[in-house]
């Protein structure tokens, strides 16, 4: 089936099976490799993207369910003020170890800051607890989200 998807501000046309998860459409049909495969069933958060501003697990969304929704991925999150602040905070705090989970962490954090500009530590943990980091960078992720939230005033 041919699908025209609205991804990162552009229309992309792809020819894939109806049940192909958005994750694999992004990665293999559109060559947007930033969205990561970790579990395939909504258990790790590595594949988090925004669909109409909501954080969703791209591994659980068949392409046929996307329709005209707007998809935003890690490749374009830096074009939003929140995304840019998060990326900057991530680098300042030097969050990454292997870095594999981090696109998903940043996308989840961006959705959090979009609805809650000044989250408490509990808000952060609540929002990000579903995003696993096998390397254990959680303490720095929390610090970076706080830093990005604080940066809002200056921005």
């Amino acid at each position: 089936m041919r699908y025209s998807l609205h991804v990162n501000g552009h229309i992309h046309t792809v020819d894939v099976d109806d049940d192909t998860p958005l994750l694999w459409v992004l990665r293999d049909a559109m060559n947007l490799k930033g969205t990561k495969y970790g579990c395939g069933v909504g258990l790790c958060g590595s594949c988090t993207v925004h669909i109409d501003g909501e954080p969703v697990h791209a591994c659980r969304r068949p392409v046929s369910s996307i329709g005209i929704s707007k998809v935003l991925t890690i490749e374009a999150i830096g074009s939003t003020p929140i995304g840019a602040r998060l990326q900057e905070a991530w680098l300042k705090v030097d969050v990454m170890q292997c870095g594999y989970c981090q696109p998903g962490q940043i996308m989840t954090a961006a959705a959090l800051l979009a609805r809650n500009a000044a989250p408490s530590e509990e808000d952060i943990v609540e929002a990000l607890d579903g995003n696993l980091c096998r390397c254990g960078t959680y303490l720095r992720i929390i610090e970076a989200v706080k830093l990005a939230a604080a940066g809002r005033k200056g921005a």
């Binding site: 930033g34 990326q87 991530w90 680098l91 030097d94 990454m96 870095g99 981090q102």
Partner: peptide, 23 residues
């Protein structure tokens, strides 16, 4: 002296650095 990871700027943008990203 603390030196942030060299690949950091690419990682936060989701650039294809990993084995699984190879095409």
């Amino acid at each position: 002296h603390s030196t942030p990871g060299i690949d950091g700027p690419m990682l936060v943008k989701g650039e294809p650095l990993f084995g699984i990203d190879v095409t």
